[in-house]
Computed example of a mutant assay.
Amino acid sequence: MALVLFEEKNALGWLTLNQPESRNALSLEMIGAIQAHLNHIKTRSDLKVIIIRGNGPVFCAGHNLKEFSIATPDVGHIRRIFLQCSEMMLSLQQMPQPVIAQVHGIATAAGCQLVAACDLAVAENGARFATPGVRIGLFCTTPMVPLVRVIGRRRAMEMLLSGRMISAAEAEAYGLVNRVVPPERLAEETETWACELSQFSGFTLGFGKRAFYAQVDLAETDAYRHAAESMVVNSLDGDAREGISAFLEKRSPVWAQGRDR
């Protein structure tokens, strides 16, 4: 059985974690499977938005702790797990497509990291989130990297030091997820949002996403400098020229997929 499933419809793609018996734990093999799919998806200009979800009762319960529990740990193997997981999480930001996490059940430890590493997130109202490593003596240091950047220092530190589960409502208030919906509407609401995004220029979505992450940790003056130059470059692209013309002519734009760039 495939560890990760990939489906596509129109301009949308779905990556589904498919190890429900292990609560979709991020084993080294699972991480590799996700990375392989991301490497392929990023080359697909026809796919505009990606949704990550999980099969079974939970979204993702974090790393597979069985890979750390052997009597004599293999340091090289453990290092590979964390380095490859970090690379995979960074790949989510480096993808040209916006990536939406569709969260149900729980998202804990590296599963919570996966939510934070995605560009956007939708959760069902019964979902819960935690970075509980402190409770087993393994502090969630890699999950804290995207977490602190998404929800801020105080709230991230509280989650990391306490390990407690937070509700979907708290996660929304923290900024960890964008929207909370009833469980029976989770898939539909996520797809609807993805469809709304997919109507825009694929080039512009990817360009804007790169610009966002490039400036987000810069000092304000440097961020403005980067953003201004990005606007210059973006304004010269064919889709921007088409969009401006369409606006002035009061018609719908035709993006590059439907015309020559």
Rank of each mutant, 00 (worst) to 15 (best):
E8M: 09
A194S: 04
G111R: 01
S22M: 10
G163L: 06
A223M: 12
A214C: 08
V150W: 09
R164N: 10
S245G: 14
C118A: 13
M1E: 15
K66D: 11
K42T: 09
V134P: 11
D237G: 04
E29K: 04
M165C: 10
L65Y: 04
A116N: 04
D260L: 12
H226I: 02
G206R: 03
F129N: 05
R79H: 09
F129E: 05
R79A: 14
S91A: 13
M165L: 15
V180D: 07
G206L: 02
D217H: 13
A33T: 02
Q113M: 15
G206F: 01
I41M: 07
L205I: 05
A121D: 09
C60R: 03
L120H: 08
G163H: 09
M165S: 04
T131H: 02
V134W: 02
A173G: 11
G111K: 01
A2Y: 01
I151R: 09
N24Q: 09
A127Q: 06
L65S: 15
E188L: 11
N125G: 06
V254G: 15
L236S: 05
W255K: 13
E21W: 00
S198D: 05
G133F: 01
A36H: 11
M157N: 05
C140L: 03
S252C: 10
I34Y: 04
F82N: 08
M30F: 02
G243L: 06
T72G: 11
S245Q: 13
V75L: 15
